[in-house]
Protein backbone atom coordinates (compact mmCIF):
# COMPACT_ATOMS: atom_id res chain seq x y z
CA UNK A 1 0.00 0.00 0.00
CA UNK A 2 2.92 2.30 0.76
CA UNK A 3 4.16 1.93 -2.78
CA UNK A 4 0.75 2.72 -4.19
CA UNK A 5 0.53 5.80 -2.00
CA UNK A 6 3.96 6.95 -3.14
CA UNK A 7 3.01 6.36 -6.75
CA UNK A 8 -0.18 8.37 -6.34
CA UNK A 9 1.71 11.18 -4.62
CA UNK A 10 3.99 11.37 -7.64
CA UNK A 11 1.19 11.27 -10.18
CA UNK A 12 -0.78 13.89 -8.26
CA UNK A 13 1.79 16.58 -9.05
CA UNK A 14 2.44 15.30 -12.59
CA UNK A 15 0.10 17.73 -14.34
CA UNK A 16 1.51 20.64 -12.36
CA UNK A 17 5.04 19.60 -13.31
CA UNK A 18 4.01 19.29 -16.95
CA UNK A 19 2.67 22.82 -16.69
CA UNK A 20 6.01 23.99 -15.27
CA UNK A 21 7.89 22.51 -18.21
CA UNK A 22 5.63 22.99 -21.21
CA UNK A 23 6.36 26.69 -21.67
CA UNK A 24 10.08 26.07 -21.41
CA UNK A 25 9.76 23.32 -23.96
CA UNK A 26 7.73 25.52 -26.33
CA UNK A 27 10.31 28.31 -26.23
CA UNK A 28 13.13 25.79 -26.75
CA UNK A 29 11.34 24.09 -29.60
CA UNK A 30 10.13 27.13 -31.52
CA UNK A 31 12.67 29.85 -30.72
CA UNK A 32 15.60 27.50 -30.18
CA UNK A 33 16.42 29.31 -26.95
CA UNK A 34 17.22 27.91 -23.54
CA UNK A 35 15.11 30.24 -21.43
CA UNK A 36 16.97 30.54 -18.12
CA UNK A 37 14.37 33.14 -17.16
CA UNK A 38 11.69 30.47 -16.97
CA UNK A 39 12.11 29.66 -13.27
CA UNK A 40 11.83 33.31 -12.23
CA UNK A 41 8.72 33.71 -14.37
CA UNK A 42 7.13 30.84 -12.49
CA UNK A 43 7.95 32.53 -9.20
CA UNK A 44 6.54 35.80 -10.52
CA UNK A 45 3.29 34.03 -11.40
CA UNK A 46 3.29 32.68 -7.86
CA UNK A 47 3.59 36.19 -6.41
CA UNK A 48 0.76 37.46 -8.62
CA UNK A 49 -1.45 34.68 -7.30
CA UNK A 50 -0.31 35.33 -3.74
CA UNK A 51 -1.22 39.01 -3.86
CA UNK A 52 -4.44 38.38 -5.79
CA UNK A 53 -5.45 36.04 -2.98
CA UNK A 54 -4.29 38.37 -0.23
CA UNK A 55 -6.00 41.52 -1.50
CA UNK A 56 -8.97 40.24 -3.47
CA UNK A 57 -9.35 36.76 -2.09
CA UNK A 58 -9.15 35.11 -5.50
CA UNK A 59 -8.52 31.37 -5.45
CA UNK A 60 -5.14 30.74 -7.08
CA UNK A 61 -6.39 27.70 -9.00
CA UNK A 62 -8.95 29.91 -10.73
CA UNK A 63 -6.55 32.82 -10.98
CA UNK A 64 -3.93 30.79 -12.91
CA UNK A 65 -5.08 31.68 -16.45
CA UNK A 66 -5.38 35.32 -15.45
CA UNK A 67 -1.84 35.38 -14.07
CA UNK A 68 -0.74 33.79 -17.34
CA UNK A 69 -2.63 36.36 -19.40
CA UNK A 70 -1.07 39.31 -17.55
CA UNK A 71 2.37 37.88 -18.00
CA UNK A 72 1.72 36.91 -21.62
CA UNK A 73 1.68 40.59 -22.56
CA UNK A 74 4.97 41.17 -20.78
CA UNK A 75 6.49 38.13 -22.44
CA UNK A 76 5.53 39.25 -25.93
CA UNK A 77 6.97 42.70 -25.27
CA UNK A 78 10.19 41.30 -23.83
CA UNK A 79 10.75 39.00 -26.78
CA UNK A 80 9.83 41.61 -29.38
CA UNK A 81 11.95 44.39 -27.90
CA UNK A 82 14.95 42.55 -26.46
CA UNK A 83 15.38 38.88 -27.26
CA UNK A 84 14.52 39.32 -30.94
CA UNK A 85 17.78 41.20 -31.43
CA UNK A 86 19.88 38.12 -30.79
CA UNK A 87 17.76 35.40 -32.41
CA UNK A 88 20.33 34.84 -35.15
CA UNK A 89 23.29 34.62 -32.77
CA UNK A 90 24.89 31.43 -31.44
CA UNK A 91 22.94 29.87 -28.61
CA UNK A 92 25.63 30.76 -26.08
CA UNK A 93 24.60 34.38 -26.64
CA UNK A 94 20.85 33.81 -26.26
CA UNK A 95 21.50 31.71 -23.19
CA UNK A 96 23.60 34.46 -21.63
CA UNK A 97 20.89 36.99 -22.44
CA UNK A 98 18.18 35.05 -20.66
CA UNK A 99 20.62 34.42 -17.82
CA UNK A 100 21.15 38.16 -17.45
CA UNK A 101 17.41 38.83 -17.57
CA UNK A 102 16.97 36.13 -14.95
CA UNK A 103 19.51 37.74 -12.60
CA UNK A 104 17.72 41.05 -13.02
CA UNK A 105 14.22 39.67 -12.41
CA UNK A 106 15.38 37.54 -9.47
CA UNK A 107 17.12 40.45 -7.82
CA UNK A 108 14.17 42.76 -8.46
CA UNK A 109 11.80 40.30 -6.80
CA UNK A 110 14.24 39.88 -3.96
CA UNK A 111 14.31 43.65 -3.45
CA UNK A 112 10.52 43.98 -3.70
CA UNK A 113 9.30 40.88 -1.89
CA UNK A 114 12.36 39.76 0.17
CA UNK A 115 13.62 36.18 0.26
CA UNK A 116 10.94 35.07 2.77
CA UNK A 117 8.99 32.03 1.74
CA UNK A 118 5.29 32.75 1.28
CA UNK A 119 2.43 30.46 0.59
CA UNK A 120 -1.22 30.96 -0.22
CA UNK A 121 -3.20 29.61 2.75
CA UNK A 122 -6.59 28.59 1.47
CA UNK A 123 -9.56 28.84 3.78
CA UNK A 124 -11.06 26.30 4.11
CA UNK A 125 -7.97 24.17 3.52
CA UNK A 126 -8.43 21.83 0.53
CA UNK A 127 -7.82 18.73 2.64
CA UNK A 128 -7.47 15.29 1.13
CA UNK A 129 -9.55 12.80 -0.83
CA UNK A 130 -9.74 9.68 1.27
CA UNK A 131 -9.79 6.61 -0.94
CA UNK A 132 -9.72 4.07 1.85
CA UNK A 133 -6.21 2.70 1.93
CA UNK A 134 -4.63 5.74 0.33
CA UNK A 135 -5.18 9.48 0.56
CA UNK A 136 -4.76 12.04 -2.19
CA UNK A 137 -4.07 15.69 -1.34
CA UNK A 138 -6.81 17.73 -2.97
CA UNK A 139 -4.70 20.83 -3.72
CA UNK A 140 -2.33 18.80 -5.89
CA UNK A 141 -5.23 17.25 -7.77
CA UNK A 142 -6.74 20.69 -8.45
CA UNK A 143 -3.39 22.02 -9.66
CA UNK A 144 -2.80 19.01 -11.87
CA UNK A 145 -6.30 19.19 -13.36
CA UNK A 146 -6.11 22.92 -14.09
CA UNK A 147 -2.59 22.39 -15.44
CA UNK A 148 -3.75 19.68 -17.82
CA UNK A 149 -6.68 21.83 -18.97
CA UNK A 150 -4.31 24.70 -19.77
CA UNK A 151 -1.91 22.39 -21.58
CA UNK A 152 -4.76 20.95 -23.62
CA UNK A 153 -5.89 24.47 -24.48
CA UNK A 154 -2.36 25.27 -25.64
CA UNK A 155 -2.25 22.12 -27.76
CA UNK A 156 -5.62 22.96 -29.35
CA UNK A 157 -4.48 26.52 -29.96
CA UNK A 158 -1.36 25.31 -31.73
CA UNK A 159 -3.20 22.76 -33.79
CA UNK A 160 -6.38 24.49 -34.80
CA UNK A 161 -5.81 28.22 -34.97
CA UNK A 162 -4.08 30.00 -37.80
CA UNK A 163 -1.67 31.46 -35.34
CA UNK A 164 -0.86 28.09 -33.90
CA UNK A 165 -0.17 26.73 -37.37
CA UNK A 166 2.14 29.67 -37.99
CA UNK A 167 4.11 28.83 -34.84
CA UNK A 168 4.47 25.22 -35.92
CA UNK A 169 5.45 26.29 -39.42
CA UNK A 170 8.18 28.55 -38.04
CA UNK A 171 9.41 25.72 -35.86
CA UNK A 172 9.60 23.33 -38.81
CA UNK A 173 11.26 25.66 -41.26
CA UNK A 174 11.68 29.30 -40.48
CA UNK A 175 12.68 30.42 -43.97
CA UNK A 176 9.94 28.51 -45.73
CA UNK A 177 7.39 29.94 -43.29
CA UNK A 178 8.65 33.45 -44.03
CA UNK A 179 8.29 32.79 -47.76
CA UNK A 180 4.72 31.69 -47.19
CA UNK A 181 3.95 35.05 -45.63
CA UNK A 182 4.28 34.20 -41.93
CA UNK A 183 5.56 37.14 -39.91
CA UNK A 184 8.42 35.35 -38.21
CA UNK A 185 9.31 38.13 -35.76
CA UNK A 186 5.79 38.42 -34.50
CA UNK A 187 5.38 34.65 -34.35
CA UNK A 188 8.49 34.33 -32.23
CA UNK A 189 7.18 37.03 -29.88
CA UNK A 190 3.82 35.33 -29.42
CA UNK A 191 5.39 31.89 -29.02
CA UNK A 192 7.60 33.32 -26.29
CA UNK A 193 4.54 34.99 -24.79
CA UNK A 194 2.75 31.64 -24.69
CA UNK A 195 5.75 30.14 -22.91
CA UNK A 196 5.55 32.96 -20.35
CA UNK A 197 1.79 32.40 -20.06
CA UNK A 198 2.36 28.79 -19.10
CA UNK A 199 5.11 29.76 -16.65
CA UNK A 200 2.86 32.33 -14.97
CA UNK A 201 -0.05 29.90 -14.75
CA UNK A 202 2.20 27.19 -13.33
CA UNK A 203 3.45 29.66 -10.72
CA UNK A 204 -0.10 30.54 -9.68
CA UNK A 205 -1.03 26.87 -9.44
CA UNK A 206 1.87 25.99 -7.20
CA UNK A 207 1.52 29.05 -4.94
CA UNK A 208 -1.00 27.18 -2.80
CA UNK A 209 1.13 24.03 -2.64
CA UNK A 210 4.78 25.01 -2.48
CA UNK A 211 6.28 28.08 -0.78
CA UNK A 212 7.11 30.97 -3.10
CA UNK A 213 10.42 32.84 -2.99
CA UNK A 214 12.85 34.33 -5.50
CA UNK A 215 15.47 31.87 -4.28
CA UNK A 216 13.24 28.99 -5.40
CA UNK A 217 13.40 29.99 -9.05
CA UNK A 218 16.49 27.92 -9.88
CA UNK A 219 14.75 24.84 -8.52
CA UNK A 220 11.77 25.28 -10.84
CA UNK A 221 14.05 25.91 -13.80
CA UNK A 222 15.90 22.72 -12.96
CA UNK A 223 12.64 20.79 -12.84
CA UNK A 224 11.73 22.16 -16.26
CA UNK A 225 15.11 20.99 -17.59
CA UNK A 226 14.74 17.52 -16.21
CA UNK A 227 11.17 17.14 -17.42
CA UNK A 228 12.06 18.27 -20.92
CA UNK A 229 15.04 15.96 -21.15
CA UNK A 230 13.04 12.99 -19.87
CA UNK A 231 10.16 13.60 -22.24
CA UNK A 232 12.11 14.94 -25.19
CA UNK A 233 12.52 18.62 -25.94
CA UNK A 234 10.02 20.64 -27.83
CA UNK A 235 6.90 18.53 -27.68
CA UNK A 236 3.75 18.89 -25.58
CA UNK A 237 3.20 15.15 -25.05
CA UNK A 238 6.87 14.95 -24.06
CA UNK A 239 6.40 17.62 -21.38
CA UNK A 240 3.31 15.85 -20.02
CA UNK A 241 4.98 12.45 -19.88
CA UNK A 242 8.13 14.00 -18.45
CA UNK A 243 6.07 15.86 -15.84
CA UNK A 244 4.39 12.72 -14.57
CA UNK A 245 7.66 10.80 -14.77
CA UNK A 246 9.49 13.40 -12.67
CA UNK A 247 6.64 13.45 -10.15
CA UNK A 248 6.89 9.69 -9.69
CA UNK A 249 10.71 9.68 -9.68
CA UNK A 250 10.81 12.40 -7.02
CA UNK A 251 8.19 10.63 -4.98
CA UNK A 252 10.08 7.34 -4.95
CA UNK A 253 13.41 9.13 -4.56
CA UNK A 254 12.09 10.86 -1.46
CA UNK A 255 10.94 7.51 -0.07
CA UNK A 256 14.14 5.63 -0.78
CA UNK A 257 16.82 8.28 -0.22
CA UNK A 258 15.08 10.92 1.83
CA UNK A 259 13.22 13.99 0.56
CA UNK A 260 16.35 16.15 0.41
CA UNK A 261 17.79 13.88 -2.31
CA UNK A 262 14.72 13.77 -4.55
CA UNK A 263 15.91 16.52 -6.89
CA UNK A 264 19.50 15.27 -6.86
CA UNK A 265 18.24 11.90 -8.01
CA UNK A 266 16.36 13.60 -10.83
CA UNK A 267 19.53 15.45 -11.85
CA UNK A 268 21.66 12.35 -11.83
CA UNK A 269 19.00 10.71 -13.94
CA UNK A 270 19.08 13.68 -16.30
CA UNK A 271 22.83 13.40 -16.82
CA UNK A 272 22.56 9.66 -17.32
CA UNK A 273 19.73 10.15 -19.78
CA UNK A 274 21.61 12.84 -21.67
CA UNK A 275 24.63 10.57 -21.86
CA UNK A 276 22.63 7.68 -23.27
CA UNK A 277 19.72 9.20 -25.11
CA UNK A 278 19.96 12.97 -25.62
CA UNK A 279 16.75 13.23 -27.62
CA UNK A 280 14.65 12.09 -24.67
CA UNK A 281 12.34 9.14 -24.27
CA UNK A 282 9.99 10.32 -26.97
CA UNK A 283 12.67 11.61 -29.31
CA UNK A 284 12.23 14.70 -31.38
CA UNK A 285 8.73 15.32 -32.50
CA UNK A 286 6.85 18.17 -34.00
CA UNK A 287 5.23 20.59 -31.59
CA UNK A 288 1.51 20.03 -31.03
Amino acid sequence: MLWLQVLVNGLAVGGLYACIAVGFSLVWGVLNIINILHGSLIVLGGYLAFFAHQYWGINPFLFAPLAGAVMFAGGVALQYCVINHVMARPFLITLLLTFGLNLFLDNSMLALFSADYRKVLLNPAPGVFDLGSIVVPADRIYATLVGLVLISALALLLRFTQFGRAIIAVRMDRDAAALLGVNVRWTYAVAFGLGVFMAGSAGALLSAIFPISPVASAGYLSKAFVICVIGGLGSIPGAVIGGFALGVIESFGALLLGPEHALTLAFVLLIALLAVRPSGLLGRQGFA
Partner: peptide, 23 residues
Protein backbone atom coordinates in the same frame (compact mmCIF):
# COMPACT_ATOMS: atom_id res chain seq x y z
CA UNK B 1 24.34 44.24 -7.44
CA UNK B 2 23.12 40.93 -8.88
CA UNK B 3 20.38 42.78 -10.75
CA UNK B 4 22.95 45.18 -12.13
CA UNK B 5 25.18 42.28 -13.13
CA UNK B 6 22.13 40.91 -14.98
CA UNK B 7 21.57 44.20 -16.77
CA UNK B 8 25.25 44.32 -17.60
CA UNK B 9 25.05 40.87 -19.17
CA UNK B 10 22.01 41.91 -21.20
CA UNK B 11 23.68 45.08 -22.46
CA UNK B 12 26.91 43.25 -23.26
CA UNK B 13 25.10 40.60 -25.22
CA UNK B 14 22.99 43.12 -27.11
CA UNK B 15 25.79 45.52 -27.93
CA UNK B 16 28.89 43.35 -28.08
CA UNK B 17 30.95 44.59 -31.03
CA UNK B 18 31.93 42.44 -33.97
CA UNK B 19 30.32 39.78 -36.11
CA UNK B 20 26.79 38.89 -35.26
CA UNK B 21 26.91 35.22 -36.08
CA UNK B 22 30.39 34.45 -34.84
CA UNK B 23 31.52 34.68 -31.27
Amino acid sequence: HAGILGLLVVLLVLFLPGGLSQI
